[in-house]
Design a protein around this nucleic acid. Structure first.
Lengths: 210, 210
DNA sequence: AGTTGCAGGTGGTCAGACCACTAGAGCGTA
DNA sequence: TACGCTCTAGTGGTCTGACCACCTGCAACT
């Protein structure tokens, strides 16, 4: 025999999601507005409170709503990137080669540098230089250096992805960029020479895994 | 008095998510493998079954797991968000987030092209050209074109991240690259001119949101 | 051997019970 | 009146126990 269908019955929590969408639309709710309480929803939608909660938790994880204990559930002001972290972490769980991870990480770092480049003024360069000159481990230097650049690059999504990759690669015996790399990069940044930056990273790619 | 912190206690279901991630990692579970039953998890993790379920439903909505009644819960290859159209209609992404998303996506596409470039022989270019010449929508063309390139780029991780971003942005009213873009790119690919490719993408960035 | 039917495990759902927390009404005092 | 306190109703957070529907595998039966 063969299965007639694997879709079977729709689940209650999915119906709740539909209803919620309709409710938000019909009542013209905007970010920040309050949703009905869980008990009220359970009553209105003829569902158990736990089913309501399953739907709400899913929405919360996606960053669409925010719950405040003792107050209620609210539409979120803006779409946070909360779910990206979770997704990334699970995607990265699958067996990945070290090469792929490092390749992507280096790629993102390069692009961040290029994004930050036009936004670095004299002051910023000095700050950056100061932070790298400290007597710290290569790992710390790497973190501080790029964290600063990512801040300037002003792209939260890129930062999140980078941090995830950083976390996953931290368990690997990874060689960071060479000692002279940061100094060379500083120089190119002050010249705002994007093409040379591109080239500098190209070189690094080949000696990254020493 | 002032609030010490608004983060308050972490919720149980979030802890469950963490534990699940660790479990999957430690046991080297692959897509298709079975997770422990809800009752077993509740017992192991010292949590109520409802909390376990809240975590699982969230993962299900994200498309990371699949549940089969009477059988169990299974890890799944990340394919797509469940009911994206539903979720996207809840809230439109904030402009800022949208910009970031498109920026990162374009960046990844560019890098994929550059990775694929040296691996494209005569035959591959012909295949690629044929697939783009078809009479299809711009959206389909975009997907087919880059899917092929990502395959050649041979970096699964990059591909996954790209698909994730594609998924998120699919609900946005996004203009794809201009009509001539793909043809120009084809030409540069046959010349293997990486720097020109870089430049081509630079141009696109500015007219992406027409 | 082939079929049937039952038992145990699994997800799906609900109701009810607490707890911790918040906001606001109401009261009292200065 | 104005301030500050307490108490209460309402909210999310969590757990438990109870069913149901469904699937699988095994055992008994034909």
């Amino acid at each position: 025999m063969f299965k007639v269908s694997n879709s079977s019955k729709p689940k209650v929590y999915q119906g709740v999601l539909e209803e919620l969408r309709a409710y938000i639309k019909d009542n013209h709710l905007l970010p920040g507005d309050k949703l009905p309480s869980e008990r009220e929803l359970a009553d209105k939608l003829q569902a158990g409170r736990s089913s309501i909660r399953e739907a709400l938790r899913a929405l919360e994880l996606l960053g669409l709503i925010e719950t405040r204990r003792g107050e209620g559930t609210f539409l979120r002001t803006y779409q946070s990137l909360q779910s990206v972290e979770l997704l990334s972490s699970f995607i990265l769980l699958a067996d990945r080669t070290k090469d792929e991870l490092l390749q992507v990480k280096a790629m993102i770092e390069k692009e961040a540098v290029k994004l930050a480049c036009p936004k670095l003024d004299e002051t910023a360069l000095l700050e950056l230089d100061a932070s790298v000159s400290k007597e710290i481990t290569r790992e710390e230097k790497h973190m501080i250096f790029f964290s600063y650049l990512f801040k300037k690059a002003n792209n939260q999504l890129l930062l999140k992805i980078w941090m995830m990759l950083e976390e996953f690669s931290s368990s690997l015996p990874v060689a960071y960029y060479g000692k002279t790399f940061y100094n060379q990069l500083m120089e190119l940044l002050s010249k705002k020479d994007c093409y040379a930056i591109e080239a500098l990273f190209e070189q690094q790619d080949h000696q990254l895994y020493d």
